[in-house]
């Protein structure tokens, strides 16, 4: 399958979104709102839930189902307050010893006037720095699109997994084509050279696991995928919890340190 087909699949309107995964993977979910500084960003859903009976903190980018909800959620492109809400909830998770699970699905951090005024760059940078040393296990799953720094700001983790048809890249193929080919219509060609598929990223050691999507994609096999993810998360969290915290943080550091 061509990389571009994965891009289309990752953007398929019927593809399950974070809100679907939250319902399917967790029980007892309580959503928590706001960054305590400015406002609540609906592009990121955060809260506490149980996973196989164990309390966890869940943070997820949500694109929205219908047009009205998409607009409310800014099509899943977070503003700085979304990243600051995430950090607040991650610090809270650390305080109470809860593992953190993040779901990534965004075209990128929002490129708006207000986002710049309120320090989009600073908000992302702060998350990267703080997540690298949070003293609880962090697992990230890229479920759809993983766009640039806006995705990475939720993806500094002990394990990063991707769904088979998800993509994760430095920039959208359109943006990449616009910069390097001076032509955003060459997105298709760009996708083939960018190494943005789960398979490419697995080979580059950027991710640890590819989660299979039986059939034509996650929209056709959601129940099976959700069951699989639940089992994988429960197993991996127990592995991470069994590690001394210093070892876990050392591994997390090395996970990013190796890219030269």
């Amino acid at each position: 399958m061509k990389a571009w087909d994965r891009v289309l699949n990752a953007r398929n309107v019927n593809r399950p979104l974070s809100s679907d995964y939250i319902k399917a993977l967790f029980d007892d979910f309580v959503e928590l709102h706001g960054d305590r500084l400015y406002k609540d960003d609906a592009a990121i859903i955060g809260g506490i839930a149980t996973l196989g009976g164990m309390p966890v903190t869940v943070i997820a980018q949500e694109k929205g189902k219908n047009l009205k909800e998409k607009v409310r959620r800014n099509f899943g492109s977070p503003n700085p307050e979304g990243y600051r809400k995430s950090l607040r909830l991650m610090k809270q998770a650390e305080k109470f010893g809860r593992p953190i699970i993040t779901l990534v699905d965004t075209q990128g951090a929002y490129c708006g006037l207000g986002a710049e005024e309120r320090g989009q760059g600073e908000a992302i940078a702060r998350n990267l720095m703080e997540m690298s040393s949070l003293k609880v296990p962090i697992i990230t799953i890229v479920i759809g699109e993983g766009g640039s720094g806006g995705a990475l700001a939720l993806a500094v983790a002990d394990r990063v997994w991707m769904l088979e048809n998800a993509i994760y890249s430095i920039l959208s193929p359109e943006g990449f084509a616009s910069i390097l080919y001076k032509d955003s219509t060459k997105a298709k060609e760009a996708a083939e050279v960018m190494k943005l598929t789960a398979q490419d990223l697995y080979e580059l050691d950027v991710i640890e696991k590819i989660i299979e999507e039986p059939g034509a994609g996650a929209h056709e096999s959601f129940e099976a995928i959700a069951l699989n993810i639940t089992a994988l998360l429960i197993e991996e969290i127990s592995v991470l919890k069994a590690m001394p915290i210093e070892d876990m943080l050392e591994e997390r550091y090395a996970r990013y340190r190796k890219f030269l």
């Binding site: 720095m129 960018m194 580059l204 950027v206 990013y256």
Partner: peptide
């Protein structure tokens, strides 16, 4: 910003440098 020609490896540098700064900060 990030070096587009190096794709995802360039993106990983954001996390790498920030993690090193976290240790320096600590």
């Amino acid at each position: 910003g990030a070096r587009m020609q190096e794709g995802i490896i360039s993106l990983m540098q954001l996390a790498k440098t920030s993690a090193a700064l976290s240790r320096f900060n600590d």
